[in-house]
Design a protein around this nucleic acid. Structure first.
Lengths: 132, 132
DNA sequence: AGTATAGCGTTATGTTATTACATAGATTGA
DNA sequence: TCAATCTATGTAATAACATAACGCTATACT
């Protein structure tokens, strides 16, 4: 996949996410694209599905929102699980990878015979700037 | 908190979750309690909020559902983050704690000055029984 | 009794996500 | 070329998840 190969709707959704400072809900994305002809949630959800499949957008399960991948040049899929720290005050999201954590979780899964397909790691709290 | 001190609605919601084989959505809980007089979502959500606060119920963010704590005798709050493995085939949930993972995530947070309030770890995949 | 707190019941509404069906364009391959 | 297929799209309707706002009740404390 390359950015070149995105469809019209996918590009528009991706642009909105890239320009946003933080995560956006699907309906917020929809609102920002109404001027450009978007009318229905599905136009957003379908684009998001593909963008997530391509690894250029992540879904934040704990807040039902979406962010552009912070490491676009790398291939997120190649780096194990993507983890997030979400500031509940300013809304900013820090995306990170932690090999040790991945490894420990993989060990656990192996010990239980569990085949992991998708792992969610999300820390909600306060980022450095938001603690006074 | 003790089970003794649960209110009527809280007890009813907790009973439903305890008797269920797997996680339930709030609306499924509501449906199971209609016979017993429940009418509105809020009756369920309010009870769930308290049960979660007491640590006897967990919320699964990635599937918008709720489970009774699998380790009722212990105090989940005392064991660090509760993690879940959710089988996408049979729906069963394995609840576990992993000290090493907690530790690594705490290290990461410390290194970034991030104050963690609530951490979500959910692995979706196939449990041992559901792999043929 | 007075007041504070927690819980409850109900209606309405807000937010997030999907089903279902119809259409359009590109691609492939006999 | 024509049909078959696949992907993307548009739209309406609906399902699924969650909360706001209001008023009332019960309990506990002083």
């Amino acid at each position: 996949m390359s950015l070149q190969s995105l469809t019209r709707n996918q590009s528009m959704v991706f642009d909105v996410l890239e320009k946003a400072e933080g995560p956006l809900s699907a309906y917020t994305i929809l609102d920002r694209l109404r001027d450009q002809g978007f009318r229905a949630p599905l136009q957003v959800y379908r684009a998001l599905d593909k963008l997530i499949e391509y690894g250029v957008v992540h879904r934040l399960e704990s807040i039902n929102s979406f962010v552009a991948c912070a490491h676009p040049q790398e291939n997120c899929h190649g780096h194990g699980t993507v983890a997030f720290a979400i500031c509940e005050s300013c809304g900013n999201v820090i995306e990170f990878h932690n090999h040790d954590v991945d490894h420990k979780l993989a060990d656990w899964a192996k010990s239980r015979g569990f085949k992991a397909e998708k792992t969610t790691i999300e820390i909600r709290g306060l980022c450095e700037n938001c603690q006074s």
